[in-house]
Computed example of a mutant assay.
Amino acid sequence: MNPYAFLAIAIISEVFGSSMLKVSNGFKKLYPSIGVVMGMGVAFYCLSLSLISIPLGTAYAIWSGIGTALTALVGIIVYKESFNLKKFLGLALIIGGVVVLKLSSGGSH
């Protein structure tokens, strides 16, 4: 499987796990707590598989950057958290940074 597919699965799983933290009520609710553990477990496993071919700095920057941006969007869309110009600019800068890092890797990884 393509290492970037593993990285994408890692990102989606991490966003899911982080989103379940919100509803786990401090790990007092069983099913959301299981979602946190499973989401994070799959995320780290798939991240480790992506690191076989993708440089650590590139993979981690993409994983954390896109994961942060998507988690913020989940907060805004699902949990109705506030959204303003500063949040938009912050998310745009994160995504822009990820794009620049990906472009700097030369596409050979």
Rank of each mutant, 00 (worst) to 15 (best):
M40L: 14
L93C: 14
G90R: 05
F16C: 07
I12K: 06
V98Q: 13
A72K: 06
L103A: 09
W63M: 08
W63N: 05
S108Y: 11
G67E: 01
K87Y: 13
I77T: 15
L103D: 01
G90A: 12
G39K: 04
G75E: 15
S82P: 07
A5S: 13
P32G: 07
L91M: 15
L51I: 03
A5N: 14
K87L: 15
A5R: 14
K87M: 10
S48C: 04
C46L: 02
V37D: 13
G96F: 09
L51E: 07
L85Y: 13
K22L: 04
A5Y: 11
G39R: 00
K87S: 13
V74W: 12
A92L: 09
F44P: 03
I34T: 03
L91Y: 01
I11K: 08
V42I: 15
L73K: 04
V78R: 11
N2T: 08
F27K: 01
V78M: 06
I11S: 10
K86Q: 13
I77K: 14
I77A: 15
W63A: 00
T58I: 11
G57V: 06
V37L: 14
L103I: 06
K22A: 08
K87R: 15
G96T: 07
S82G: 15
S19M: 03
S50D: 04
H109M: 09
K80W: 07
S64T: 05
N25V: 03
T68M: 10
I9G: 01
S24Y: 05
E81H: 10
A43I: 00
S108W: 12
G97M: 03
N84F: 08
S33W: 12
L56C: 00
K80G: 04
F6L: 11
I95G: 02
M20N: 02
Y45L: 10
S82T: 13
G75Q: 09
Y60V: 05
P32W: 01
I54D: 00
L7G: 08
V42Y: 05
F44W: 11
G107R: 07
F16E: 02
P3H: 05
A5I: 15
A5E: 03
F83N: 10
A10S: 14
S33G: 07
K22S: 04
A43V: 04
I54R: 00
T71F: 05
Y4V: 06
Y79W: 13
L103S: 07
L85K: 15
A8L: 14
F16Y: 12
A5K: 04
P3S: 14
L73W: 09
G96L: 04
L73A: 08
Y45Q: 03
E81K: 13
I77N: 03
A61I: 07
L49C: 03
A69Y: 05
N84H: 06
K87W: 03
I94K: 02
I9H: 02
A72M: 14
S82V: 15
G26H: 11
I11F: 07
I34F: 00
V37C: 11
I66K: 00
S13F: 04
Y79M: 05
L85V: 13
L93E: 12
N2M: 13
G26W: 12
I62M: 12
A69G: 06
K22F: 10
V15F: 01
S105F: 05
F16A: 14
L21H: 13
N84Q: 00
G106E: 04
M1H: 14
